[in-house]
Design a binder for these strands. Structure first.
Lengths: 173, 173
DNA sequence: GATAATTAATCAGTATGCTGATTATATGTA
DNA sequence: TACATATAATCAGCATACTGATTAATTATC
């Protein structure tokens, strides 16, 4: 059984996939054990919308670094579960404004302990220093590669907050 | 815009997904630039089968840590592309023996430079020491979490090599 | 103010990746 | 040998993720 040129199991891409695979499985397990039916993307979207009421889908996609076509489906399912409201924007009739519902807010706060537990569990093989270092290196590699995928991270523009027409006042005055 | 409890963009699970997202995008870009139409899984499967002729699908899935139901589809597509042969095993009529074809071998060797380039590009934000350290920490975290997903890594049992009835002789004498 | 270029959302299509079930075959045990 | 158990592959169903196209609306340019 001759060895392949380079063991696939040691390649960065393979390790990236494996770690993510474990992360997703742990998230699902913890969420389910806590009685919630929410996927990692759905959680990320819900949290981002909660923090940015009235955000549109493209901006949301940029904030959590998901492809805009993926976000369409994710938002569909969150609306269907009653966690979001999606309405046409008055400022831009192409856009949809997203708002979290009361049920969404309850789910978001209720699931937090499970989400945090999941983050600990996926790092259980590392001590505190190693965990910190892993996250630092991931952040660094990701920052350098941000533009390489179709769904790069994009900061929300200043007026995202204005979308729902309610934050303006407490920005700088 | 009040800050969420913990910025999602700093969570291990989010960083895991982002890094993997970039890794996949880079793989696709490099493979396509080199004139190949092969996904990361397809590459991993092809390489594993090449190194373990006659391997069955469950063992293959364990070797590259993919879910067995995913492997069914991946193998379908590789067979359809003419890179694999899939035949019923004589030792166990439930199992399928997988064999790489000449076309598969050519693709596998031809795509190697692109695959290696992709691994470098996805780490371009890190220097050599940092890259080494990231991979070490990923390996460690993955080893500790191996059993947490439905598709853990499994070493091929000793008799996988025997499946095709050809390696026995050059194993230990 | 007409027209071109851009943008937000969506869609069709493909490939992962998972859960849980089914089918066919092997294996263990009474 | 009969029967329970286990295993390999597959399937249906769902949710990411992507590519590339389309539609509707906005913005830029002349």
């Amino acid at each position: 059984m001759e060895r392949s040129v380079k063991d696939n199991n040691d390649m960065p891409g393979h390790l990236a996939r494996r770690f993510q695979q474990i992360a997703v499985a742990v998230f699902h397990a913890e969420a389910e054990a806590a009685g919630y039916d929410l996927t990692p993307v759905q959680y990320a979207a819900l949290a981002a919308i909660s923090a940015n009421p009235g955000i549109d889908q493209v901006t949301l996609a940029g904030l959590i670094a998901y492809d805009r076509t993926t976000i369409t489906g994710v938002v569909d399912r969150l609306v269907q579960k009653g966690f979001l409201e999606r309405r046409a924007s008055k400022r831009d009739r192409r856009a949809r404004e997203l708002e979290i519902t009361e049920a969404g807010r309850e789910t978001l706060s209720g699931i937090m302990p499970a989400v945090e537990a999941a983050q600990r569990i996926m790092l259980r093989g590392l001590n505190a220093d190693e965990s910190e270092e892993l996250l630092r290196l991931l952040r660094k590699a990701i920052a350098a590669g941000n533009e390489l995928s179709r769904a790069p991270f994009r900061e929300a523009s200043a007026d995202v907050a204005k979308a729902a027409g309610r934050i303006e006042s407490d920005r700088d005055g």
